[in-house]
């Protein structure tokens, strides 16, 4: 009997690490064009303000803005609160110095505490939300003063997790990173030359002392991004489990995703007519 060689397909046909890999130079070229087109051609703004937290998302955003508009047209705004870590300020300064962009530092403590004195029992979550919303007031006001556009810094993972303050972090009119998972932002950061200390440190919202994103979320970004990748493409929990991911982590990600759809939408309006805005009367944002 002549036996044929048997060639088997690899066991693992879903290599999420590989599927999440991006061509960073190509993405950079694309996002630079996005910023120029959406800011200058579409909206007539040549200047950008970016809230610099010292983290990787806002650093990458500043790097992209500097490439797209020239460093002289970018303002990096540091907005510390009294409990913010000194490291956040220092890391933001590294970005400002490396890019040669303009900068302002606005201490939001008096503004935040000015309100919170009436709500002394507010818990950490509420205090964090007040800080995030205060930062947006500063960014939008400075953008008016500078004739600039605030540029958002939220990534796809945090948007999918609802891990942001509604109508605060997500409010700038344009956002270059919103369709990139956190692990993809890290890839882009390394390509752009964001200081390694910023890329490799644990991500943190820095709203509470010692806080890290991965502790808050209960899962690492590496694992979360891979699970999100498959959930968004329509794979069932059982299929993802078969790929080797822990069931409790899949359920955690799925739970977060499915409980935060509202955060990715505009407020719900009661429909009464056949010209209801965004239901019947449909015009794109740039029309």
């Amino acid at each position: 009997m002549n036996r044929l060689e048997v060639v088997k397909a690899p066991e693992r046909t879903h290599d999420a690490e590989e599927l999440l890999r991006i061509n960073a130079p190509l993405v950079t070229e694309w996002l630079v064009e996005f910023l120029r087109d959406e800011m200058i051609r579409r909206r007539g703004f040549r200047r950008a303000v970016v809230g610099l937290s010292g983290g990787v998302d806002s650093s990458v955003t500043a790097f992209l803005c500097a490439r797209a508009l020239g460093p002289e047209n970018v303002w990096g705004i540091r907005m510390p609160y009294r409990t913010s870590s000194a490291e956040s300020l220092e890391h933001a300064q590294l970005v400002i110095d490396q890019l040669g962009i303009n900068s302002r530092t606005i201490d939001i403590t008096p503004a935040v505490d000015g309100y919170l004195q009436y709500e002394p029992d507010a818990d950490g979550r509420r205090r964090g939300n007040v800080m995030a919303r205060m930062r947006m007031i500063v960014l939008f006001d400075l953008s008016a003063a500078l004739n600039a556009l605030p540029v958002g810094t939220g990534n796809k993972t945090e948007r999918l997790f609802g891990y942001f303050t509604w109508h605060a972090d997500d409010s700038p009119p344009i956002n270059p990173l919103g369709d990139l998972f956190k692990t993809q932002v890290w890839q882009l950061a390394r390509y752009l030359g964001v200081p390694e200390v910023i890329v490799s440190k644990p991500a943190t919202a820095d709203l509470i002392v010692g806080q890290t994103d991965e502790d808050d979320l209960g899962i690492s970004y590496h694992l979360a991004d891979q699970i999100l990748y498959f959930l968004l493409r329509g794979y069932r929990v059982e299929q993802i489990e078969e790929m080797g991911y822990p069931r409790e982590k899949i359920l955690l990600v799925k739970g977060r995703l499915e409980s935060t759809h509202w955060k990715r939408h505009l407020p719900t309006t009661a429909m009464l007519s056949t010209t209801s805005i965004n239901d019947y009367y449909l015009r794109p944002v740039d029309y």
Partner: peptide, 8 residues
Amino acid sequence: VGFEGGKG
């Protein structure tokens, strides 16, 4: 060519 509402 050109971006329209974020889609390039």
